[in-house]
Amino acid sequence: MPATYLSIGQLSHRSGVPISTLHFYERKGLIASERNAANHRIYRRELLRRVTIVKVAQRAGLTLAEIAKALSHLPMDTVPNTAEWARLADIWHDDLTRRIETLTALRDKMAICIGCGCLSVERCALANPDDRLGKEGPGARYIPDMSI
Rank of each mutant, 00 (worst) to 15 (best):
A3P: 04
A3D: 15
A3L: 15
T4C: 10
T4G: 02
L6R: 01
I8H: 04
G9M: 05
G9N: 15
Q10K: 09
Q10S: 04
Q10E: 10
L11W: 12
H13G: 08
H13Y: 14
R14Q: 08
R14H: 04
P18W: 04
P18C: 05
S20R: 10
S20C: 11
T21C: 05
H23Q: 12
H23K: 13
H23S: 11
F24S: 07
F24K: 01
Y25S: 00
E26V: 10
E26D: 14
R27Y: 06
R27K: 15
R27V: 07
K28Y: 04
K28F: 05
G29A: 14
G29Q: 11
L30H: 00
L30P: 00
I31V: 01
I31R: 02
A32G: 13
S33F: 08
R35W: 00
R35A: 07
A38F: 04
A38V: 02
A38G: 09
R41W: 13
R44W: 14
R44K: 15
R45Q: 14
E46R: 10
E46G: 09
R49E: 02
R50Y: 05
T52Q: 11
V54W: 04
V54D: 00
K55V: 11
K55M: 03
A57V: 01
R59Y: 00
A60Y: 06
L62M: 10
L62I: 05
T63N: 06
T63Y: 06
L64D: 01
L64I: 06
K69S: 10
L71T: 00
L71D: 03
H73D: 01
H73R: 08
L74M: 12
P75N: 08
M76N: 00
D77L: 13
V79H: 06
T82V: 15
T82P: 06
T82S: 15
W85F: 09
L88R: 03
A89F: 09
I91Y: 06
W92Q: 01
H93G: 01
D94W: 00
D95V: 11
R98E: 00
R99N: 03
I100G: 07
I100H: 14
E101I: 07
E101G: 11
L103N: 12
L103A: 13
L103K: 05
L103Q: 12
A105T: 08
L106R: 13
L106M: 14
R107V: 02
R107K: 14
R107C: 01
D108N: 14
M110G: 06
A111M: 06
I112E: 11
C113W: 09
I114E: 15
G115H: 04
G115K: 06
G115E: 02
C116N: 10
G117Q: 12
G117I: 04
G117A: 08
G117V: 10
C118L: 11
C118R: 07
S120Q: 07
E122N: 14
C124L: 10
A125L: 12
A125C: 04
A125N: 12
A125T: 09
A125F: 00
L126E: 05
L126I: 12
L126R: 14
A127D: 03
A127Y: 01
P129Q: 10
D131V: 01
R132A: 12
R132E: 10
R132C: 07
L133S: 09
G134M: 07
G134F: 10
G134S: 11
K135I: 07
K135Y: 05
K135W: 05
K135A: 11
E136S: 12
P138L: 02
G139K: 03
R141S: 00
D145I: 09
D145R: 05
M146K: 07
